[in-house]
Each structure stands twice: as C-alpha cells, then as structure tokens.
Design a protein around this nucleic acid. Structure first.
Lengths: 230, 230
DNA sequence: GCCATTAGTGTAATCACAACACGAAATGAA
DNA sequence: TTCATTTCGTGTTGTGATTACACTAATGGC
C-alpha cells in the first residue's frame, strides 16, 4: 500500500486455523488434531495451515479442513487475525482464525498429513492446546453462541429438512443451556426464517412432527425480533 | 503449521489498514489519504501499510497512523482480515483492517510519506476509495455504531473529564441519530462506567455541569443493562 | 433583578421476554 | 379395540426494560 519496492520486504508467514464445531452424542465438541511434528509435537491443535498465493482466505480454511480431516463444513465465518510476535516459536506467523460447523450426517473425520490423530473434544473439557489456539477457541465459542442466540444457526447442523424439536435440541446444545419450548417455537415462527415442507414422523411413537427448512437466503440471518442498531 | 519446509513457500504480503474516525464540526468523519503512487494513484484510501516482521498487528496499525498522518488514536480495535485474491492489482496482499477513534483535542493530521494529501471526509459523503477500502469502511462503521450503542465508546473522543451533555452529543454523532436526554443519563448512571470528578462550567451562560470520567478499566466495556448471552 | 441558556430530574405507557400446563396425534402392547 | 406411552403443538400472564415526554434549578449577561 506504499511504493513499488515496499512489498519486497521480508514478510510474516500467513496461516489459517479453524475451530470446527460439531455435536457428538449431544455434546458440543471441537475438532482437534494431534501434531506429529515440532513445534508442539504431540500437542492438540486446531486444523490449519499456510495460505497459498492464489486462494482466498476462506478457501484456504476450507482446504485445510478437507486436507487435514477430510470434512466440508456447512458454515464457516471469520473470527479475526491473530498475530502476536512469538505466537509461533519458529518465526513470525500471522494466522486468520475461523469458526465452522459440521453437519452431523457428515462422515467422521480421518487423520491425514501432518496429524497423527484427529478427534472431537467436548468443549467442556479441552486439553492444553498448541500456539494460541486456546484463545482462538474461546473467541470462536463466543461467536458461535452469539450467532446461536440471535439466528438459529443450529439449522446448519441438520439436514435439509428438520423438525422444530430437532432444531431446539441442537440450539440448546450450542448454547449450553435449555430453552423454553413454547417461547422457542414462537420465536422461530415469528422470525420468518423457516418454511414448511411436508410432514413426517421420525422416531417410533409420538405425534408426527411437521418438517421445516431454511427459507431462501436465510443462512445465519438474525431473527426478526433481535435488536439492531439502525 | 506443518513441517519445517512449508513455511518457505511464497507467501502473501501482509498489510494493515485503519479506518480512523473523528468528529469534524460535529460530523462523523474518516481520515483518508490521497495516494501519490500507483496503483490507484490519486485515489483516496485508508492509511495503512506493510506489517514488519517484529511488530504486532495492532502496533503496525498504530505505527502507520503515526507515519502517514502523525496521529495517535485513543482507541483501536480489529475488524478482520480481508484477503480476496485480486484486491491488490500488484500481487497477493492480505490486509488486517482496524477501526480507531481520534480525540478531538489531538492536533490535526498532516500529510506525510506516501500521501499527497490527508483529509477528513464526512462518512455521509465519501469519495470512491482505492482497493476494497469502501468495504472496510462499511464494516468499520458497523462496528463503531455497535460499540457506541452498547458501550459509551464516545468517551474516548473527549478529554479525561467531560460532562454528560458532551458525552451525549458525541454519542449522537457516532450513532447518527439523536438520543433522549433523560433516558441517556439514566443509562449512564446505571451503567456504573462513570465516576464523578469535581464541578465546572464550560461555555458562558447556563447552569454548571458536573464532570465525570471513565471508571478504572472501563474502556469499551458494555453498559450494565445490555443483554448478553450468558 | 430579569432574561437567556444549559443542567438536571420522574412517571406513565408500551413492548419484549420469561414462566408455565395441558390437549392432540401417533405407536405398541394387552 | 382399548389403553398406556410418547412426542408434538399451542396461549396467557407477569415482569422487567425501553420509550416518550415537560418542567425546575443554577448560572451569566444585560
């Protein structure tokens, strides 16, 4: 952004790191990989890696998820850049952190490339993490809960169609606390985010539940009732 | 974040760009510099520049403000990373964007280094901007207004001590719409962010106003009443 | 001392959110 | 077929927060 020479200076390395969330047995969990190489050899870390010259940041994040764990998130959003000098002991590395959601029906992640192991860890009991990844997870969780509170983002964890009961259960898992059934359903109805889609009954007994899907272009949109600042 | 060789790959350049806001004659304005060199020669742009190997991101942002305009912001916060390939026609450049506030009593900015001119532009009427800086300004404004709504950030634009009337005026300028006097004062009182600090009368006639200052470590903290998600 | 100017204060109406219990529709077993 | 079980689906009331709104208090200038 200065003259034609400036951009030949030595430059920091640029990486992306992704906090990928999913539900494992109803537990909100983060996908971690165990590092096979130094630094932090043997430690758990977020999947991530270097940004290539020709790819966008979000693309880089998606590619790393695919390469390192073989998964494609249903939702991904940037958290911000983490660039404290010394956060990587090797050299100066600035990392753009992301958070993402993986649908439950996606196939399980598999270890690949730089990882000796890939595993879901419940957010309630995380191990020590490499680099500043603990900070990133904290920030990611914060954003996730904010989104879950204000926008039914949990729908991204379900299939194309889902019942209100399913959606509520997912949202509760994301938020980490129970929701009132009637209030939840009212909010969803009034939000205008959902549209009906037939009828069905999933598990054995009980009255069949109506099916819904996300309305067009409603990904992550705020509920109608949420306070905004003009 | 992979093996010892990976970080020798060619890497994107890394810059910071800052949307610095201030009040000019009561108008919320952004500081822009006119570029003296290609690309976008002669266009208005946000101050910014390359990140050095040994400095943190926030430091880089502050340094560029000082170098290019000779100012030190009272508040600065990250917006996020902008890294679409092609956003800089020269080569791949990823930029970490920031927004900042400059106190009214700071001395006026001066043109330096890469800029042929430095000027405040009211946000209501911005010129076309270089690169993707228009997007950054939009995002910055959004965050600024959010903060102003939920946290009396306007106090950063005033001196150490200020009256509630002054604070309200500033907040109104930031938000872009008027606030109710009594409701504003109640919120401030209940927030617990402010503490008294003597007594004074500023301009000519009228009842003297009480002076306040920000309570310890209350920078940008949310008002007590603001809804949060647990 | 009177007028102009700015600071400071309380209450009523409205709205959003939280709490809460039962009837409806299906399944499966007796 | 009847009954027990299970899950789905629905409305109202109370409470706390936000909004709207008008006058008195204290000073400076004439």
């Amino acid at each position: 952004m200065t003259d034609g020479f400036t951009y030949r200076w030595p430059r920091p390395a640029l990486t992306v790191d992704v906090a990928l969330f999913g539900l494992q047995a109803g537990q909100l969990s983060v996908l971690l990989i165990r590092r096979r190489l130094p630094p932090f050899e043997g430690w758990w870390a977020l999947p991530g890696g270097f940004v290539r010259l020709d790819e966008g940041l979000e693309w880089a994040a998606r590619r790393e998820l695919e390469e390192e764990a073989g998964v494609r998130p249903a939702w991904i959003e940037q958290i911000g850049a983490f660039g404290a000098p010394g956060r990587d002991p090797r050299e100066r590395v600035v990392s753009v952190a992301w958070w993402a959601l993986l649908r439950a029906d996606e196939h399980a992640p598999v270890a690949a490339s730089d990882a000796s192991e890939v595993r879901w860890h419940p957010v309630a009991s995380l191990p020590a993490l490499a680099f500043d990844h603990a900070t990133m997870v904290t920030a990611a969780l914060h954003r996730l809960r904010q989104r879950a509170w204000e926008s039914a983002i949990g729908a991204e964890l379900l299939g194309e169609q889902f019942t209100l009961g399913e959606l509520q259960t997912v949202q509760e898992s994301l938020l980490g606390h129970p929701l009132d059934k009637r209030n939840f359903r009212r909010r969803m109805n009034e939000s205008g985010l959902l549209v009906e889609a037939g009828e069905a009954r999933s598990e054995g007994p009980g009255r069949p539940a109506r099916l819904f899907r996300l309305g067009d272009r409603m990904r992550g949109a705020p509920l109608g009732s949420t306070r905004e600042n003009e």
